[in-house]
């Protein structure tokens, strides 16, 4: 047993300062309703941390994840990613950040249905401006590494849930991002496969130093992380470091 990360020793990767998010909705009478989701979130995540964000549905954890992933913008407050204020970036820069610095893993895998496993993995490389041939070569290597090399020409619906999620993880990792954002990655998987995926995350974190931010509502999944953040009604109610197994 060892303590996985000493936050003090690693540089800060993510810093949220008094971050708020509210949605504007129109009700039936056409009136604008301000629907706040996140309140004054202050959060610092260092490089190579493995963080689980927990909370019930409606706690704002998915919104927080979308903001961390530069898919959504906060209503107020600041978000510094590697020391850069995300609010100052234009849409092209944000696309580049999502492509190069962040890898996404979703509950529903979100693979492109009509593309083979290999092609799915290759898209981020293509978006990064790498040639098709080289992209496919690297993707093959990635699939081999993750143990799905022989499924390269399968379409997503020809793969099991666990296989699909591992293809999605390959896609998330192909551009060697600093952060892996996983939104309920095991939500659609059985417990054995969930365990396999979480083991893979642990290895990635330990061996390659990839920062992992995981969203889950299951305690046993969260227990793989080294730091637990509890979110309730848009507030951080608990932030504990824990020993990893």
């Amino acid at each position: 047993m060892f303590v996985a990360n000493q936050p003090a020793s690693n540089p800060i990767l993510i810093q949220l300062n008094r971050l708020c998010k509210a949605y504007e909705l129109t009700d039936r009478s056409g009136e604008l309703i301000n629907h706040p989701v996140l309140f004054d979130i202050n959060l610092t995540i260092n490089q190579s941390e493995f963080v689980a964000i927990m909370g019930h549905s409606g706690s704002g954890k998915s919104t927080l994840m979308n903001i961390l992933g530069c898919l959504d913008t906060p209503t107020s407050g600041n978000y510094w990613l590697s020391g850069r204020d995300v609010a100052t970036m234009n849409s092209a820069e944000l696309a580049r950040i999502r492509n190069q610095n962040i890898g996404f893993v979703f509950q529903s895998f979100n693979l492109l249905k009509r593309m083979t496993a290999l092609e799915n993995v290759a898209i981020p490389l293509l978006y990064a401006g790498i040639g098709r041939k080289e992209s496919l070569k690297r993707s093959q290597a990635m699939l081999d590494l993750i143990g799905l090399g022989k499924y390269r020409d399968h379409l997503p619906n020809q793969l099991s849930g666990g296989q699909q999620q591992r293809v999605a993880i390959s896609r998330a990792l192909i551009n060697q991002p600093q952060i892996l954002l996983a939104d309920e990655p095991t939500g659609n998987l059985d417990s054995q496969t969930s365990h396999d995926i979480m083991t893979l995350f642990t290895q990635l974190n330990r061996n390659q130093g990839i920062t992992i931010v995981l969203i889950t509502h299951e305690n046993d999944i969260a227990s793989y992380a080294h730091r637990l953040i509890h979110l309730k009604d848009g507030h951080i109610v608990e932030d504990e470091a824990r020993l990893s197994n």
Partner: peptide, 16 residues
């Protein structure tokens, strides 16, 4: 739309 969302999440810019 969903496909577009996925593509954006993995780095497709407005231009692409």
């Amino acid at each position: 739309t969903r496909e577009i969302g996925i593509r954006m999440a993995i780095g497709a810019s407005y231009r692409i």
